[in-house]
Design a protein around this nucleic acid. Structure first.
Lengths: 116, 116
DNA sequence: ATAATATATGAACAGTTATTCATATATTAA
DNA sequence: TTAATATATGAATAACTGTTCATATATTAT
């Protein structure tokens, strides 16, 4: 398992990779953000919020699922700072956390359309 | 569950959301790509490949884990078109599928550094 | 053809996670 | 204060996923 035709070249890349490898903690954070975007039930919520802020009732209407399931997923998205919440009377109004998230979703959708 | 202070405004957003919602299939594809990036073992492989193409032996060296585990994850990344493989003699040489993936990883790392 | 090396894969197991159900909390109305 | 509404949450379950172990496939050398 140690003879490959590109040994020297690959070993240089391995060296660079080992040097530049982020900490386990940073990798976990990075992956956590992507994990938040990796479940259809959450993605539907985000796609809905990409159209404007919504209270839970309307998120359920737009994205489907039960109130409880949606609420659990909202919690995960909130914990990962993908969305923010603000209370408005009896309602909690949710929105995308920042323009970066909105852009990421849009960009990914475009990318999807190109390579189907 | 039907009186919210922003009813009209939210219902317009719900309308837009329902209209623009991609098909279940497209959502699954989109989420599949993010899921591929959501596991530390896979992310380490991608971070290694961001330094240059590598054969499996060197991926194991750079990213850690057993040969079998790495090979299983390579399969997942390949199925999701995040990486490409080419045979070179006894070796299979892997690389990031396109510049878009490389940029996504780099951008995310920078974003991570900013908001820690 | 046989042996050796590199990589891939199926099955089993363990850990994780999304959903459901029941219930709790918080706000507003009466 | 009590009732009603909106949202959140703990526990249980079912489905999913990553790793390991054993083994298979493919290429090269002898």
């Amino acid at each position: 398992m140690e003879n490959c035709n590109h040994k020297a070249e690959h070993e240089r890349a391995v060296g660079r990779a080992k040097q530049s490898l982020p900490s386990e903690e940073d990798i976990a954070k990075l992956c956590g953000a992507f994990k938040a975007l990796s479940e259809p039930s959450r993605m539907k919520i985000l796609l809905a919020l990409a159209q404007g802020e919504l209270c839970v009732y309307h998120i359920v209407e737009a994205a489907g699922g039960t109130q409880s399931a949606v609420s659990h997923q909202l919690r995960i998205l909130r914990d990962n700072r993908i969305i923010r919440a603000r209370r408005d009377g009896q309602n909690i109004v949710y929105s995308l956390a920042d323009e970066h998230v909105a852009r990421l979703i849009r960009t990914s959708l475009e990318h999807l359309n190109c390579e189907v």
